[in-house]
Deep mutational scan, measured.
Amino acid sequence: MIINNLKLIREKKKISQSELAALLEVSRQTINGIEKNKYNPSLQLALKIAYYLNTPLEDIFQ
């Protein structure tokens, strides 16, 4: 099972779900679904998340 630290990292960087969704060009519901482990992001989306949060991919999804 993948450990998902997206919410923790996003909140630590003081970025809202809506702000991150806008940067990634996805819906806020997509971010919410990823954070609640209801949706697994594509590799492309996971890499974009890591880029915009300036955090290694391995720290977000373990």
Results as ranks from 00 to 15, higher is better:
13 K>H: 10
27 S>G: 06
57 L>C: 08
42 S>T: 12
23 L>W: 14
15 I>K: 05
28 R>W: 14
51 Y>H: 10
51 Y>K: 09
38 K>S: 10
44 Q>F: 11
57 L>P: 05
27 S>L: 04
20 L>Q: 00
48 K>F: 04
31 I>C: 02
30 T>D: 05
53 L>D: 00
3 I>D: 07
24 L>P: 00
13 K>A: 11
2 I>C: 15
15 I>G: 01
2 I>F: 12
25 E>F: 09
45 L>Y: 02
34 I>Y: 04
34 I>H: 02
19 E>G: 09
55 T>S: 08
24 L>W: 01
3 I>P: 09
22 A>Q: 11
26 V>M: 04
61 F>K: 01
23 L>P: 00
51 Y>Q: 08
38 K>N: 10
59 D>E: 14
61 F>A: 03
22 A>V: 10
25 E>W: 08
35 E>H: 03
2 I>M: 13
48 K>V: 04
11 E>I: 13
3 I>S: 11
59 D>L: 12
36 K>C: 12
36 K>T: 15
42 S>W: 06
20 L>Y: 02
15 I>M: 15
60 I>T: 02
44 Q>P: 09
46 A>R: 13
52 Y>K: 05
2 I>A: 10
48 K>T: 04
12 K>A: 14
5 N>I: 07
14 K>R: 12
45 L>P: 00
53 L>P: 01
26 V>Y: 02
26 V>D: 01
54 N>M: 10
59 D>R: 08
61 F>H: 01
57 L>A: 05
60 I>P: 02
62 Q>L: 12
54 N>K: 11
51 Y>P: 00
9 I>W: 08
62 Q>A: 11
59 D>G: 06
31 I>D: 00
7 K>E: 08
46 A>C: 13
13 K>P: 01
24 L>I: 08
39 Y>F: 14
29 Q>T: 11
23 L>V: 13
15 I>T: 04
60 I>N: 01
13 K>R: 12
46 A>H: 01
5 N>E: 03
32 N>Y: 09
6 L>W: 00
39 Y>T: 08
16 S>F: 04
58 E>Q: 12
51 Y>S: 07
6 L>Q: 01
62 Q>S: 12
37 N>C: 13
41 P>V: 09
7 K>L: 06
25 E>G: 15
1 M>C: 15
46 A>N: 01
6 L>G: 00
39 Y>I: 15
34 I>D: 01
56 P>M: 05
32 N>L: 09
41 P>E: 03
60 I>M: 05
6 L>N: 03
37 N>A: 09
58 E>R: 10
10 R>Y: 05
27 S>Q: 05
25 E>K: 15
9 I>L: 09
28 R>K: 13
2 I>Y: 13
12 K>E: 11
60 I>V: 06
35 E>K: 02
11 E>F: 07
49 I>C: 03
30 T>P: 01
14 K>V: 04
62 Q>D: 08
29 Q>G: 11
34 I>N: 02
21 A>K: 01
35 E>C: 04
12 K>W: 08
5 N>G: 05
61 F>V: 03
32 N>H: 11
23 L>T: 06
18 S>R: 15
25 E>I: 07
1 M>A: 11
22 A>H: 10
61 F>D: 02
16 S>W: 03
5 N>Q: 07
5 N>C: 11
18 S>C: 10
19 E>V: 08
62 Q>N: 10
27 S>K: 08
4 N>V: 05
23 L>G: 08
60 I>S: 01
53 L>F: 07
9 I>T: 06
41 P>W: 05
27 S>W: 03
48 K>H: 05
55 T>W: 06
38 K>C: 14
33 G>A: 15
44 Q>M: 10
21 A>S: 06
42 S>R: 06
10 R>P: 00
16 S>L: 05
43 L>C: 14
37 N>F: 12
34 I>K: 01
50 A>V: 05
44 Q>Y: 12
24 L>R: 00
22 A>F: 10
33 G>N: 15
61 F>S: 02
61 F>Q: 02
27 S>C: 06
5 N>P: 03
56 P>E: 07
30 T>F: 14
22 A>G: 10
61 F>E: 01
47 L>P: 00
29 Q>E: 15
37 N>R: 11
30 T>Y: 15
56 P>G: 05
48 K>A: 10
43 L>R: 13
57 L>M: 11
28 R>A: 13
1 M>S: 11
30 T>R: 07
40 N>C: 15
16 S>H: 04
46 A>L: 09
58 E>W: 10
19 E>C: 10
38 K>E: 14
50 A>G: 04
59 D>W: 08
11 E>Y: 06
33 G>S: 15
5 N>L: 06
42 S>M: 04
36 K>Q: 15
51 Y>G: 06
9 I>A: 07
39 Y>M: 11
54 N>L: 07
31 I>Q: 00
61 F>G: 02
3 I>E: 08
20 L>P: 00
49 I>M: 06
6 L>H: 01
27 S>F: 03
51 Y>R: 10
14 K>C: 11
55 T>H: 06
3 I>L: 11
3 I>N: 10
11 E>S: 08
26 V>Q: 02
22 A>W: 07
31 I>N: 00
50 A>N: 01
18 S>V: 12
20 L>V: 00
9 I>F: 10
41 P>I: 10
47 L>K: 12
55 T>M: 08
16 S>I: 03
42 S>H: 07
13 K>S: 08
